[in-house]
């Protein structure tokens, strides 16, 4: 089974507040570029599926050389090939991203299964995988937490209200992975990390795609806190709280 796993390295989500200025430039300090959290989950399920099918997988990322962090991780975890679609960093319109990834997927010869993280940890739009599936004209299963090979098909498990939903799908198909039991990215073995650092990363030119969405302006939300202590006897507190809630619902929280 041929597996294509799409990865994205992002500016450290744990960087202290104020260290990153929107849209995505480092303002102060030493901010690391790390593999996005859901891409870690996607990578883990790709590794599991590759192991289960005695095959391997190809990792694809898009951006400048800072994306190599993600690809090296994939190589250390057993990816047979790492491909970077070369593109200057900055905000990318999700449809343009999906189109460029579609071109890249075709350039590497296509696959049976296309695996995405549920959303990139920087912009958190969560639409690229679906758009990609649409462009490829393939079925799309979002928010997968477990994938097992069953004959030539895949048993995919998703969490739904009150339980799980399992479905048997026949490749080719696209799915996105969310965090859940068994999706925590494993630690690579050091020998594999050392070997991965010596493996090549193939660089493809990004397809020339017209963006459909342009970032015009962005404003950082202002955080305000308004606390009020309701004192008195328990009954008085309850009455006070009820009155506050009523006022909040009526006025929308304004004073």
């Amino acid at each position: 089974m041929r597996i294509l796993c799409f990865l994205k390295a992002i500016l450290d989500p744990e960087a202290p507040p104020g260290a990153i200025r929107f849209p995505g430039t480092v303002e102060s300090g030493d901010v690391a570029t790390v593999l996005g959290p859901f891409e870690g989950n996607a990578l883990e399920l790709s590794v599991q599926l590759a192991e289960g099918s005695s095959g391997s997988f190809t990792a694809v990322a898009m951006g400048d050389a800072s994306q190599d962090v993600a690809l090296r991780k994939a190589l250390a975890l057993g990816a047979e090939r790492a491909v970077r679609v070369d593109l200057a960093p900055g905000f990318q319109d999700p449809l343009a991203v999906a189109r460029r990834l579609q071109a890249a997927a075709q350039a590497v010869g296509g696959a049976d299964v296309y695996v995405f993280g549920r959303q990139a940890g920087d912009w958190d739009m969560g639409v690229t995988a679906g758009l990609f599936a649409g462009l490829m004209d393939l079925p799309f299963v979002p928010l997968v937490q477990q994938a097992e090979l069953e004959g030539g098909s895949l048993r995919l498990r998703r969490e739904i209200a009150g339980g799980y939903e399992e479905s048997l799908r026949t490749p080719p198909l696209v799915w996105s992975v969310t965090n859940g039991p068994g999706t925590l990215m494993r630690l690579p073995k050091v020998k594999d990390v050392m070997l991965a650092n010596r493996k090549p990363i193939d660089v493809l030119q990004a397809a020339d795609v017209e963006p459909t969405l342009v970032l015009a302006e962005i404003e950082q939300a202002q955080v305000t806190r308004q606390g009020r202590m309701i004192t008195g006897e328990a009954a008085a507190q309850a009455a006070g709280l009820a009155a506050e809630l009523r006022r909040f619902l009526v006025t929308g929280g304004g004073n």
Binding site: D12, E14, A19, D30, V34, K189
Partner: peptide, 30 residues
């Protein structure tokens, strides 16, 4: 190093050192 086994908590701290040069996850400071 050979088997990729590390207790949880410690694994995250080690990953923190690898990614951002310190083991304190969720630090709010520079």
């Amino acid at each position: 190093m050979e088997e990729g086994e590390l207790p949880s908590g410690l694994a995250e701290a080690v990953q923190g050192i690898e990614e951002r040069g310190h083991p304190f996850r969720g630090a709010q400071s520079s």
